[in-house]
C-alpha cells in the first residue's frame, strides 16, 4: 500500500500541479505548513482553485497546517494540529518554493549584525509596525525586493537597491540604484552601519542601517533527508529562481512528475491494475 503512496510537500502551485498529475496513479497526500493551498499565490486564485478541485475529486489527501520535518527510511515525520505522525511513503515530491540567498550564500563577510535580515522577515516585521531602518539597502530586484519595498514604503526610509547586472532596471520605486556591483561585506557595532560593494577590484562603502537580503533565489529546502539533489526517492519541483509565471512553474512541476512516473514503470502498472 505504502509502496504507492506519494507525499507532496508544499501546496503552492508547483505542489498542487504535481499532486493533480499524480492523482489516480498513486495514493497522494499533500502537506503544507499553511492551512490553505496556494503558497505565495492567493488561495482563491482561479488556477489554484481549479487544481485544488481536481485533487479533491481525484481523492488526494490533504494535511494542511502540517509541517514535514524529516524524511528517512521511507517515512516522513509530520507535525501539525492533529499531532506528530510518521507518514509512510514510497516517494516524496518536494515543492518547497524558494527563499532569498543567505549572507553565507552571498559570501557576505563581516560580523553577524542586527539589521541584516531576509526579505520575508523584513516584510512581516514591517507589517508589525517595526521600522526597518532610515537608510535601507535592498539586495536584489525581484519579487522579494518589491515586497520588501512595498512593506516599508510608508516608513519614510531612503531606499537603495543593489542590482547584480550592470544597467539593470528596477520596476518599483526607490531612491537610488546601484547596478553591476556585488555586496561583499557588512560592518557595524551590534547593528549594521556599512555595506561594502565590489566591482572589478574596486570597492565602494555604503552607509546604511538595514540590509534586506532579497536576491539570488535558492530552493527552500528544510526537510532533513531531502536537502541535496539528488536525494533518495525525492523529486524536487522547485523553480530555479523567483522569476517565472505560475504557468511556467506548474508546467515545470508536471514535467518533473512525468519523469518520476516514467522512472517507476512497475509502480505505475500496479497502480493502474488496481484501478
Amino acid at each position: 500500500m505504502s509502496r504507492n503512496r506519494i507525499a507532496v510537500v508544499g501546496a503552492g502551485i508547483a505542489g498542487v500541479a504535481a499532486a493533480a498529475q499524480l492523482a489516480g496513479r498513486a495514493e497522494v497526500t499533500v502537506l503544507d505548513r499553511l492551512p490553505v493551498p496556494g503558497g505565495v499565490l492567493p488561495y482563491d486564485l482561479p488556477p489554484v482553485r481549479e487544481l485544488r478541485d481536481r485533487c479533491h475529486s481525484a481523492g488526494v489527501g490533504w494535511l494542511l497546517g502540517t509541517t514535514a520535518v524529516r524524511w528517512e527510511n521511507g517515512r516522513l515525520l509530520t507535525v501539525g494540529p492533529s499531532g506528530i505522525r510518521w507518514l509512510d511513503a514510497a516517494d516524496v515530491v518536494f515543492a518547497g518554493g524558494c527563499r532569498p540567498a543567505t549572507a553565507a550564500e552571498l559570501t557576505l563577510a563581516g560580523p553577524r549584525l542586527a539589521g541584516v535580515l531576509a526579505a520575508p522577515v523584513a516584510v512581516h516585521l514591517a507589517e508589525a509596525k517595526v521600522t526597518m531602518g532610515r537608510r535601507v539597502v535592498i539586495i536584489g530586484t525581484g519579487d522579494w525586493a518589491r515586497a520588501a519595498r512595498d512593506a516599508i514604503a510608508h516608513q519614510r526610509s531612503r531606499v537603495t537597491v543593489i542590482a547584480a547586472q550592470a544597467g539593470q532596471q528596477v520596476s518599483f520605486s526607490h531612491d537610488a540604484l546601484i547596478s553591476g556591483w556585488s555586496p561583499v561585506a557588512v560592518a557595524g557595532n551590534g547593528r549594521v552601519s556599512t555595506l561594502t560593494l565590489q566591482r572589478a577590484g574596486k570597492r565602494h562603502v555604503l552607509d546604511c542601517d538595514a540590509v534586506i537580503l532579497a536576491g539570488s533565489a535558492r530552493p527552500l529546502r528544510n526537510v532533513d533527508g531531502a536537502i541535496t539533489d539528488p536525494a533518495d526517492a525525492v523529486t524536487f519541483v522547485q523553480p530555479a529562481a523567483d522569476q517565472g509565471s505560475w504557468e511556467q512553474v506548474a508546467a515545470a512541476s508536471r514535467a518533473a512528475v512525468a519523469r518520476l512516473l516514467s522512472d517507476q514503470p512497475d509502480q505505475v502498472r500496479r497502480t493502474e491494475a488496481e484501478a
Binding site: 553577524r112 549584525l113 542586527a114 539589521g115 535580515l117 516585521l125 509596525k129 517595526v130 521600522t131 526597518m132 531602518g133 532610515r134 510608508h154 516608513q155 557595532n189 551590534g190 547593528r191 542601517d209 538595514a210
Partner: peptide
C-alpha cells in the same frame, strides 16, 4: 533585540 549587543531588529516603531 537581535543579538546581545543591544541592537534591535529594526530601528524603532511606527505609531
Amino acid at each position: 533585540r537581535h543579538g546581545s549587543a543591544g541592537a534591535t531588529l529594526g530601528v524603532g516603531s511606527e505609531p
